[in-house]
């Protein structure tokens, strides 16, 4: 248990210290640690976490830390993960804020390094998205629904609203499927 708490704290601290931009940029590191290596989450549960982070208000990184922590080690896990996600930023910004008048963000190498990290993270998320896509988009309904939802996101619809719409359409679709199966079953009986 103590090991899990430490793993949660350390992983989220690593994510927060390294990943630029926050939000879904942290997904590849979460996937690597908790899904692939430690097997504490399944790929489906990772998507549940994404859905929660986008629907519940608050900082996405904090939402992800709390929901994953809760899943793996209960409330203590949520606290440990959240503390990890917050601590590096807190320390770094505190130092910057103390030096703020002297510091300028205009150095070309500094800017270049961060632009490079952003590009690298793009590649990482693309790899994660590919894997998630293969798992999730298994049929015609799934592909069409995801394409419509993606188009809505690109059009500027709020992510929370997209998840809610997806939930409603998923429930309706499952009802229709169940009804069809029942009907086919009855028909076969006669």
């Amino acid at each position: 248990m103590l090991y899990r708490l430490w793993l949660l704290f350390f992983t989220f601290a690593r994510i927060a210290a390294l990943v630029l931009g926050g939000g879904l940029a942290m997904l590849p590191v979460i996937e690597e640690t908790f899904v692939n290596k430690k097997k504490l989450l399944t790929a489906e549960e990772l998507l549940d976490v994404v859905a929660i982070t986008q629907t519940v208000p608050g900082i996405i990184a904090a939402n992800a830390a709390v929901s994953i922590g809760m899943k793996i080690a209960g409330f203590a896990g949520a606290l440990a993960a959240l503390a990890g996600a917050v601590l590096p930023s807190f320390v770094i910004i505190l130092i910057i804020a103390m030096l703020f008048p002297a510091l300028s963000p205009d150095n070309v190498y500094y800017l270049g390094a961060f632009a490079g990290i952003r590009a690298g993270v793009t590649g990482l998320i693309a790899a994660t998205a590919l894997k998630i896509g293969k798992k999730t988009l298994t049929g015609r309904f799934e592909v069409i629904a995801a394409a419509i939802l993606l188009a809505a996101a690109l059009y500027g619809v709020n992510p929370g609203f997209i998840i809610v719409t997806a939930v409603v359409s998923g429930v309706i679709y499952c009802r229709i499927c169940a009804w069809r199966v029942a009907k086919a079953g009855n028909g076969g009986g006669k």
């Binding site: 998630i132 999730t136 939802l149 996101a153 359409s169 998923g170």
Partner: peptide, 9 residues
Amino acid sequence: GARLGAAAL
């Protein structure tokens, strides 16, 4: 449904 939405996001 939520997973489909999450994948799209």
